[in-house]
Simulated assay, not measured.
Amino acid sequence: MSHIDFDWSRAEQPSIAIVEAITAVTGRNSTDIPPLYDSINPDALNALVTAKGRKTSSDVSLTFSCDGVVLTVTGDGTVTARPDDR
C-alpha cells in the first residue's frame, strides 16, 4: 500500500498524483501505465477533488480501480493506492 499526501492548492493535480501512486505500488515506469482516461475522466477527477466552495477539504472522497490498483483520492490531498486483489 502506498499513501501519498499532495497539496491541491498548488500546481499538483490529482490526475498526476494518481499516476505517481500507481508507479509507487506497481514499480513500473509511468510510460508503461495505460492512459488514465481508460479508467476515469482526468479532467472530471481534477475538478471534483479540487473544487472550491466545499465546507472542508475532506468533503470529497473517490475510490476507483485503475490498471490493477485500487485508488482513493480525497479533497484534503491524500492519495492511497493498493494492489487490486480481485
Rank of each mutant, 00 (worst) to 15 (best):
T31Q: 08
E20L: 06
I22G: 10
S65W: 12
I33S: 03
A44L: 15
K55C: 10
T50C: 11
N46Y: 06
I22E: 04
K52E: 13
V49F: 00
L45V: 11
V60C: 10
T80V: 05
D5L: 04
D5R: 03
S9R: 10
Q13T: 14
S39H: 13
A21C: 05
T80A: 09
Q13G: 00
W8N: 15
D85K: 09
C66Y: 15
N41Q: 10
T50A: 15
W8R: 00
S39A: 15
F6T: 00
G75L: 02
I33M: 08
V60Q: 08
I16Y: 04
D32Y: 01
K55M: 08
R86P: 04
E20M: 05
G77M: 02
T63Y: 10
V60W: 04
S30K: 03
N29P: 01
L48F: 05
T26R: 02
P35H: 08
A47I: 10
A47S: 13
M1V: 06
T74M: 01
R10N: 15
G27S: 05
S2V: 03
N46K: 07
S58P: 01
E12F: 06
T31Y: 07
R82S: 14
F64W: 11
P83V: 06
V49Y: 05
L71W: 01
C66W: 13
T74I: 00
T72N: 08
S65E: 15
Q13K: 15
A21N: 03
T72W: 00
T63F: 13
S61D: 11
L48C: 12
R10S: 15
V73Y: 02
D59F: 05
G68C: 08
G75K: 01
A44H: 11
V25C: 03
L36T: 12
L48R: 09
A24H: 01
S61V: 07
F6V: 05
R28S: 13
